[in-house]
């Protein structure tokens, strides 16, 4: 048999009864294993490991950006073809949506005697950044973008692509940052169903591709294809109000059933992001802010 452990073959050579001088696992391996285990424990506590991550961000971010621009053509080539069609479709949809939203805002202004909740009409100040890397080993729900603190990006900055929300910045470096996508199991966004205006929470699903909608009121009617938009956080951080999250694509179970599962598909394909927009904080004069149309 070709696959046998070396230790076995050594033991055959060693006279029986003579105690082994070396342990089965070499000492350096043991030490490294212990280091890895203690890193996990240290990271659970937080603190020291933050510096390690920052160092990784400072060194790794630019390297990924460089590698991405050096190899960029290879992974994005198949996407580009789809993108032009998708862009066309996005454009018409967003034009329709604009009209729709404007109508809704007007109606709201009239019906409720208060300020419109939905400031989707207001311009958000954004910068665009290239996506240079994705969650490397265990999950696909985080990406690196080539924009950081130097560009005015802050923790919890909302990230958009193709007119829809895709996630928020969860870690900032100097020239790059990590974006936690909506599909991340740790991600949760306060949302509203368009039409019925019911409130819900959109959390990352277990398959890391779609979102689960957790309705606050289990008796609410949900329709297939219904659009889901953000409620908005206080002061618009992390999430501004009125951004598209996705559409309801699947409803399992009947109204009122405790196990009713409503699935939302993100509007943008989160596994094929090329370029994203990061929403800059408003009225921040100290930073140089580039505005994108």
């Amino acid at each position: 048999m070709a696959v046998t452990t070396r230790v076995d073959s050594k033991q055959q050579r060693r006279p029986a009864g003579k105690p082994s001088r070396r342990s089965r696992v070499p000492i350096p391996v043991l030490i490294l294993g212990l280091v890895a285990l203690s890193l996990m424990l240290l990271d659970l506590q937080g603190g020291v490991t933050g510096y390690l991550r920052q160092a990784g961000m400072t060194v790794g971010g630019p390297m990924q950006s460089w590698a991405n621009s050096a190899l960029g053509v290879i992974p994005t080539l198949p996407d580009q073809r789809v993108n032009t069609e998708e862009l066309q479709r996005d454009l018409t949809i967003s034009q329709q949506r604009e009209v729709e939203l404007q109508l809704q805002v007007d109606q709201l202004r009239e019906q409720l005697d208060r300020r419109a909740v939905d400031p989707a009409g207001t311009e958000l100040e954004t910068i665009s950044a290239a996506v240079v890397a994705a969650g490397p080993l265990l999950s696909r729900t985080t990406v690196t973008v080539a924009a950081g603190r130097n560009d005015g990006v802050d923790l919890d900055t909302a990230v958009l692509a193709g007119n829809a929300l895709v996630g928020r910045v969860s870690e900032v470096g100097r020239t790059s940052s990590t974006v936690q996508l909506l599909t991340d199991p740790d991600s949760g966004v306060g949302v509203r169903l368009q039409g019925s205006r019911e409130l819900a929470l959109a959390v990352g699903g277990t398959d890391q591709q779609v979102l689960d909608l957790q309705l606050f009121d289990p008796l609410v009617d949900v329709e297939l294809g219904q659009r889901v938009i953000t409620v908005g956080s206080p002061d618009g951080r992390p999430f501004p109000a009125g951004l598209v999250v996705g559409d309801v694509t699947q409803i399992n179970g009947v109204v009122g059933a405790p196990d009713r599962a409503v699935v939302i598909e993100p509007k943008t394909d989160l596994s094929a992001l090329d370029e994203v927009l990061l929403v800059l904080p408003e009225g921040d004069g100290a930073r140089e802010i580039r505005q994108q149309p």
């Binding site: 280091v35 890895a36 285990l37 203690s38 890193l39 996990m40 240290l42 990271d43 659970l44 490991t49 390690l52 991550r53 990784g56 961000m57 060194v59 790794g60 971010g61 990924q64 890397a133 994705a134 969650g135 490397p136 080993l137 265990l138 999950s139 985080t142 990406v143 690196t144 969860s170 870690e171 470096g173 790059s176 940052s177 990590t178 974006v179 936690q180 991340d184």
Partner: peptide, 9 residues
């Protein structure tokens, strides 16, 4: 390295 977010180690 970014964008890893799992526990270090």
């Amino acid at each position: 390295m970014p964008p890893a977010q799992t526990t270090l180690g």
